[in-house]
Design a protein around this nucleic acid. Structure first.
Length: 560
RNA sequence: UGUCCCAUGGUGUAAUGGUAGCACUGCAGAUUUUGGUUCUGCCGGUUCAGGUUCGAGCCCUGGUGGGACAACCA
């Protein structure tokens, strides 16, 4: 009878709309979405939300999802961005259905429709200056006034529009405007501009066009041409919807028409998301390019060591709604840790080395100890790690005068070396400045891991054999801003909140030899420290690792 | 002195007129040869005022608060 195990999954508001449409047999139950980036910049985590939403919905409802470049403004757009956008989408794990498409594919059709609107008296060529047109538009609280060209003869507009297309006029001297309503309380309905003159080479159409359509005129019609059923966009386009519908009213003939639905864009705490601000960070050299691991760009996250899976699960978790939101970055960090915990090999790396000499370990002896590659994955196997009389441990793991709850090394204290022996600190040496230079320990030969030894000590340290250690540079990344909402302060610039410690480069790190042949992009857990990946700058004679995210650290937290 | 949109724990997001749930964060504890993972528990919420109803987070009215709109950008 009842199937209590089959709970009804809760739907977000867009899924509700789609399911209702399917139930009503709207568009014969066909579901077709699209992701429409403008190729004028790199994709960021906010776009990832939109990509996961659109492509995800298509998968969920057996529909399709197009990739369509909204390339109607040649002065800002470039193939460089087209390529990076395609790469990022595929890296995230999605594939568009045919295409990719370009709004510029539809310039001819758009022109044809524009002529039709002029013929029907629904569009006209305005010859006024930009300043004048803007002035006549009025303000949201006061109606605008009509252009003196508004009711000029159709033939005149037709002729002028064709000559605009043919390149007879200078940039900015004429525009084609839709004849809607200058008194509308919605500014976008006050005779919006459909075409402007731009003698600019387009990355795909070259010099074919001297006029280019505006977003509002191109977008809905492109949706219509592609058979899009649900056209998802962010909240700031809500007020454009009446215009989206008005333009569609002028060209739609059958029963099919796309529907625009708006959702809230993603905001992340401790970061900025606007393309303009990200561009500023790049251009002013505050970060090292669009793929700097501190950037919220997809390419930055990729270089930082994020996985597509982790970004997709993040997108699932944040949900979709219509209210403004700021997602805590800790949720993003949780998502990567969750995935990396499952897939990464545990290795040992010492970031800030201090030498430990095991005085009772035979000078001529050396051995290998076995370490589990990944306790979360029983098929991951194990590997042998060299151990010796001299090892490195991390400076943070030793204190001259440690508090009782410090479960690490201190004078007279015992700790276990992960996978090896229990050692006891007998003595240590300092330099003039008081820095610890060497630590002298003895080991208990009866306590080798895996030998059935039962003696337990509270602390376990990671270590690297001094003789076998390989050198590496490690880049420690932290959030770029120290304020939760860097661009949320009226009287302050977002750059006032830059974190001076967002990047720390450690150049004297010691890693276990297993990592000698790690390749760019390879990901590991450095035991007890965090998740790290090999940076593309890395070379076989100079390894470079990026810290993706530290491990959760309840000890550090307690001592904050 | 406009139009449109939004309002549920610290942060997100469910509940579609019938027990306010989940995730992250935070705080405890158990386990642990990673102060990780895993497991358990706890803290904490319907913006306000009316109305409709047997019953309102949900419907209605008003208030308050927040956001969007005045590019020949998208």
């Amino acid at each position: 009878m009842d199937t209590p195990d089959k709970e009804t999954k809760s739907l977000n508001f867009i899924e509700s709309i789609i399911e209702e449409d399917i139930n009503n047999k709207k568009h014969d139950g066909r579901i077709h979405l699209r992701f429409p980036p403008e190729p004028n910049g790199y994709l960021h985590i906010g776009h990832a939300k939109s990509i996961c939403l659109n492509f995800g919905l298509a998968q969920e409802y057996n529909g399709k999802c197009n990739l369509r470049f909204d390339d109607t403004n040649p002065v800002k757009e470039d193939v460089e961005y087209v390529d990076s956008i395609k790469e990022d989408i595929q890296w995230l794990g999605f594939q568009w259905d045919e295409g990719p498409y370009y709004a510029s594919d539809y310039f001819d059709k758009l022109y044809e429709w524009a002529v039709k609107l002029i013929q029907e008296g629904k569009a006209y060529v305005d010859e006024q200056s930009q300043a004048l047109i803007s002035e006549q538009k009025g303000v949201p609280t006061r109606p605008g006034v009509e252009s003196p060209y508004r009711n000029r003869p159709v033939e005149e507009s037709l002729d002028l529009f064709e000559r605009m297309k043919n390149g007879e006029f200078e940039d900015g001297t004429k525009v084609l405007r839709a004849k809607v309503d200058m008194t509308s309380p919605n500014m976008h309905m006050r005779d919006p501009i459909m075409y402007r003159i731009l003698h600019s080479e387009h990355h795909r159409t070259g010099n074919k066009w001297n006029i280019y359509p505006m977003y509002d005129w191109a977008h809905g019609q492109s949706d219509f041409i592609e058979g899009i059923t649900h056209s998802l966009c962010t909240l700031e386009f809500e007020i454009h919807r009446p215009l989206y519908d008005w333009f569609l009213d002028q060209i739609v003939e059958g029963s099919y028409r796309p529907r625009q639905i708006e959702f809230a864009r993603l905001n992340l705490s401790y970061t900025v998301m606007s393309k303009r601000k990200l561009l500023q960070l790049v251009e002013e050299g505050i970060v090292n390019g669009w793929d700097d691991p501190r950037m919220p760009t997809i390419s930055g996250l990729r270089r930082r060591g994020y996985t597509p899976e982790s970004i997709r699960s993040f997108a699932d978790r944040i949900g979709v709604a219509k209210r403004d939101n700021i997602i805590d970055v800790s949720l993003l960090e949780f998502s990567v840790r969750e995935h990396l915990n499952k897939i990464t090999t545990r290795v040992m790396g010492v970031l800030n080395p201090v030498k430990v000499i095991i005085t009772n370990y035979p000078e001529d002896k050396s051995e290998e100890v076995e370490l589990t590659n990944n306790p979360e994955d029983e098929n991951s196997g194990s590997r042998m790690v060299p151990f010796g009389r001299e090892i490195y441990i991390d400076r943070d793991d030793f204190m001259e005068d440690p508090p009782r709850k410090f479960f690490r090394m201190g004078p007279g204290r015992e700790v276990r070396l992960k996978g090896a022996y229990i050692i006891k600190c007998e003595d240590y040496k300092k330099d003039d400045k008081g820095n610890i230079t060497e630590i002298y320990c003895t080991y208990d030969s009866e306590t080798k891991s895996g030998s059935g030894a039962t003696r337990k000590v509270k602390g376990t340290l990671h270590w690297v054999s001094a003789e076998h250690a390989i050198d590496a540079e490690v880049r420690l990344y932290d959030r770029l801003f120290v304020d939760e909402e860097p661009d949320g302060h009226k009287d302050k610039d977002f750059k006032d909140f830059l974190n001076p410690e967002s990047l720390k480069v450690l150049s004297n790190c010691k890693l276990e030899p297993y990592l000698a042949h790690a390749k760019a992009g390879d990901k590991f857990q450095f035991q007890r420290l965090g998740y790290f990946c090999v940076d593309p700058d890395s070379r076989s004679n100079k390894l470079i690792f990026n810290r993706t995210v530290p491990l959760r650290d309840s000890w550090a937290k307690k001592n904050r």
